[in-house]
Design a protein around this nucleic acid. Structure first.
Lengths: 192, 192
DNA sequence: TGACTTAGTGGACGCCAGTCCACAAAACAA
DNA sequence: TTGTTTTGTGGACTGGCGTCCACTAAGTCA
């Protein structure tokens, strides 16, 4: 049952998806999500508008994929075998995530906004972005529990909601989300 | 310097604004923010589309005003002279707010979304909705500090961010926001 | 080679938000 | 009554998103 049967028909242009994501990110960062139209992105990538729709359902889907690939580099999963305390690991992780928001925070805000009006994208966003992040945090907090850094009676899922909620709230209200804020959050979570 | 000089020109129809807000709320609750167009609202209120734009800048501004008036009834400010503990007062307040979300949660989500793409509405939303709510919570928490229910070393502003952040995060992710959640939040805030 | 299949192109279309404008309607002032 | 000011109306218009479609391009299969 070899699934890798040779595909029939004209093969998709290999460079096109990368060019579209690159153009999308570049234009977003310069002008902001709202000001950049699908037509702008397609034209910047030198491709027809319909070609973009052949590969992604909406503008939000394209930007999600583009931002996600960047994020994976910046917000690397904390190392389970790390020597540092979980507390330090969490603060480092949050600082990294927050630093990434300096670049793509505007896009993130717009993706969250898009998810509110589009059921299908909400699902996609949740699966590819939110749940993985939550698991990084709850995993770290469970290790913290095993090491005795936080009490057994505390709920990692709930704490993750507090952490991400604080981040979203500040971000969506256009307030600063910086290392000092990360420190305050960690302080609260590890408060004995 | 009497400002209440008799206005010249055709007076605005007194019933129109109320009819538009009523129609907006009713249609939103039945079909959802996204599915209801400005034209739908105007036509349901028996008024020209331009008349709506004469009174509000955008769809979001109209809905904000409509929802705000409802909210003021449900989420009344906790009584500073109340006999109950601040802890109970906070849990009651949050439960009331959360109950209101059953009705207008969809509209709230869409307003938050709209604020992400519209600088001017973001400002309006913040001033009329978010800041008053934050002050209710920080005020309550400060009284809790005076009464010794929470430590002097804790920051009411930061705690308010945690509280509202948790609520937003759950709401924007389509998860349940109920009395049990309110209880968990209060538990965390008043944890000694 | 020719049949088939999939990708890419360009243009038309429907829907909606928000703007603009000319004109009618309702008030007041002289 | 006539002029002035403001509200309300209806229609045209721009620009964006997403869909549809006919046509062309680039591959595989027999």
């Amino acid at each position: 049952m070899d699934e890798r049967t040779k595909p029939v028909g004209r093969p998709p242009n290999a460079a096109t998806s990368a060019a579209l994501k690159e153009a999308a990110l570049r234009l977003m960062r310069e002008y902001g999500y709202r000001k950049v139209s699908i037509a702008d992105i397609a034209s910047a990538a030198g491709v027809a508008r319909q070609t973009l729709y052949n590969r992604w359902k909406t503008k939000a889907d394209l930007v999600l994929e583009a931002v996600f690939e960047e994020t994976a580099l910046v917000a690397a999963e904390p190392d389970a075998a790390g020597e540092e305390s979980c507390r330090v690991q969490l603060e480092t992780f949050l600082s990294n995530v927050f630093r990434h928001l300096d670049r793509d925070g505007d896009a993130m805000r717009s993706l969250i906004a898009a998810a509110q009006e589009d059921e299908s994208f909400q699902e996609e966003f949740r699966t590819r972005f939110i749940l993985p992040r939550e698991e990084m945090v709850t995993g770290l907090l469970r290790r913290a529990q095993e090491r005795g850094e936080i009490g057994r009676n505390r709920d990692p899922e709930f704490l993750s909601t507090l952490i991400h909620g604080a981040m979203w709230y500040r971000m969506l209200n256009g307030q600063v989300v910086d290392a000092a804020f990360a420190h305050d959050i960690v302080e609260e979570v590890f408060r004995s």
